[in-house]
Design a binder for these strands. Structure first.
Lengths: 282, 282
DNA sequence: CTGCGGTGATACCGACCAGGTATGACAGCG
DNA sequence: CGCTGTCATACCTGGTCGGTATCACCGCAG
């Protein structure tokens, strides 16, 4: 009946992540008994057992797993609300745009130029972040809009406007035999055992097993390719940051990549709306 | 610093909506002084003035307007989390699908049949609701998935899968001169002063001004058309509930309508995912 | 079998704060 | 000039949040 308090959700998330009351309490900066009590109270109010207290540790029930996801989203939203409200009040009329470092050079430049040409252009601050960080930046209020790529990035829960769809290309060491070709297929790449395809982190930060190197950032990738140690599959606009030692070859059968402008669904601020309108005119 | 509590947000939303402390306090079931104090405390903790206390009433600052939207979303999410958690624990493996009463007969039947034919089909409960209620049902956890229509419904913050795109038709009284035509344009409709176009409620429940009648539900609309008092523009599948006294005529220049399956972004439950997969195969 | 270490739960207590009542300050208005 | 209605302030009370001490329980080593 009475709604969940964010304090309870914070506590629950801590316990659900640590699966250990004492450690969770330490992380929260409180003692263990109040934490036990708070969780019990939460369970009583919901009328649901969230945790199975097996001697030695704790496991989540299925209801608990569901609540964990919801609670994380709610806490993110609450933190975001506070940040955005403070930013709105501080008077600095500035939009923060998050983008993958190094990606979409051309598009970003065009977008910024077009926006600056608008009559009442609000200043845009560009926030470069790592791989899949844009979604988190949007969700917790550190950014207002983001350039993201479908199908690579997790766009769930975000509003988007498609900007540009492009082919993918293989980035090869310049001297490699395949680099002379004008077009390749995924099968061609897989058939070259001396050049394993680089592995990107998944949304949860883990890597799927495979022979290629684990990629953390673009600089590392660029160097590995230049050294002839790996090959990467990227969207065509990545050409803008290639080295002389790199060659880009179009991939005929790789899925197309769409770069989108994304923003959190409830931030229908005039500034974001204006930028989206500008972007829609490409 | 320390995160917003949902209690504070509830209080703030009440005041922001009523623009009146005493009325808001009454609505919340508490006295006015504690409310004043709670709001002051919220403002102090955020370091932001949310309300401009002009003698006689209260107005929202721009920061306050922003927080109002965010707070509503957070409270919805919290209520949804509680509902879903309770439902998950109650063991009833049942999906609740919300749809506009009367719309999408054919599509809904096909979807339900296809789902029932799946090997491990979870039972689906169909929840018929009024005009734009599906989004709220999804957001506050009363429904798991919904059939909605673009561009009519507010899909912000929901994940969607396109199901069916169709033309719109004009629904006319059977005896009307225009009913004999095989195709119409929006201009044709606007040029008939004796048959004003029905007005649907906007997302906020208000109506834009105009000569046509204000529509609350489909039965009312059907009767008004049959009586020759108005004409409506609907998607082609609405033909399934037409009366003998109605005639549907295709509209050449009206925007197409896409019916989509929508679900809240964080409910990646296996059941919802299964239904989406079934739906994607049309 | 019996301590020992480690789990979460319980008992109890103090301090804080949410909530109530009474009242104040201030503006509009008859 | 009161009267009314606004929100803010002052003060009190009770619930509850958090802390310390302890219990109940289990696995394990000796």
């Amino acid at each position: 009946m009475d709604p969940l308090e964010t304090r309870e959700l914070r506590y629950f998330v801590a316990v659900a992540e640590e699966l250990h009351f004492s450690r969770a309490a330490e992380r929260l900066g409180i003692a263990q008994p109040p934490l036990s009590r708070a969780i019990q109270q939460l369970e009583r109010r919901l009328g649901v057992t969230l945790l199975e207290r097996d001697r030695r540790g704790v496991t989540l029930t299925s209801a608990g797993q569901l609540l964990l996801g919801e609670a994380r989203a709610i806490l993110d939203a609450a933190a975001a609300a506070a940040r955005r409200t403070r930013r709105a009040a501080s008077g600095t009329k500035r939009l923060i745009l998050a983008t993958k470092a190094g990606a979409n050079h051309e598009l970003l430049r065009k977008l910024l130029d077009a926006h600056a040409a608008e009559p009442d252009a609000t200043e845009i601050e560009v926030l470069l972040c790592g791989m899949g960080d844009q979604a988190r930046m949007l969700r917790d209020g550190r950014a207002d809009v983001a350039l993201m790529q479908r199908p690579f990035d997790a766009l769930a829960g975000l509003d988007t406007e498609d900007l540009l769809t492009e082919q993918q290309v293989a980035i090869l060491p310049a001297g490699h035999p395949l680099a002379a070709r004008t077009s390749l297929t995924m099968a061609d790449l897989a058939a070259v055992p001396d050049l394993p395809v680089a592995r990107w982190p998944r949304h949860d930060g883990s890597y799927e097993p495979g022979p290629g190197p684990e990629i953390h950032d673009q600089a590392q990738l660029a160097q590995l390719i230049a050294l002839g140690r790996t090959v990467a599959v990227l969207c065509a606009s990545s050409r803008s940051w290639l080295w002389d030692a790199h060659t880009a070859v179009p991939l005929a059968d790789a899925p197309h990549v769409t770069t989108v402008l994304a923003w959190p669904p409830h931030s229908r601020s005039r500034d974001v709306a204006g930028l989206v309108r500008t972007a829609a005119r490409l």
